[in-house]
């Protein structure tokens, strides 16, 4: 593991896993520094240096999950730059609302849990 990437444990629940090939838990490796607009770098554009870089945050992770791992119905996962209302996010078992939501800067081995509340009761 090099210091320019972060490996995170991402867990889906409450039916959200159905959008991610029905796999509940996965390890995700992302760059430690990412484009300022949270766009996910594609292999071809690697040589082009984005104008601004930021430390990888949860907003970037959401974009990354949508680009790389989501298999079904992207509109049920994100709206604009964040998760769709009704999806709960936990960062290391703490409500992300206490951790700065999308602006939380990720650390190596962080555990992110995403749970949908929208599925039948």
């Amino acid at each position: 593991m090099s210091s320019d990437t972060l490996t995170l444990k991402v867990e889906f629940g409450g039916g959200l896993e159905l959008l991610f090939s029905n796999k509940r838990i996965r390890d995700v490796t992302i760059p430690a520094f990412v484009p300022g607009d949270s766009s996910v770098p594609s292999p071809e554009s690697e040589s082009i240096q984005p104008t601004s870089l930021k430390q990888a945050d949860v907003t970037f992770l959401l974009h990354y999950l949508r680009e790389k791992h989501l298999t079904d119905r992207p509109e049920l996962f994100m709206e604009k730059d964040t998760v769709r209302p009704g999806i709960l996010v936990l960062i290391n078992d703490t409500d992300w609302e206490l951790e700065g939501e999308g602006d939380y800067v990720l650390k190596d081995k962080d555990e992110i849990v995403l749970i949908s509340t929208l599925h039948g009761g």
Partner: peptide, 12 residues
Amino acid sequence: YFKKLDYFSTEC
């Protein structure tokens, strides 16, 4: 979630 209760979540 915190109580780790066993529930089922799939849309009809």
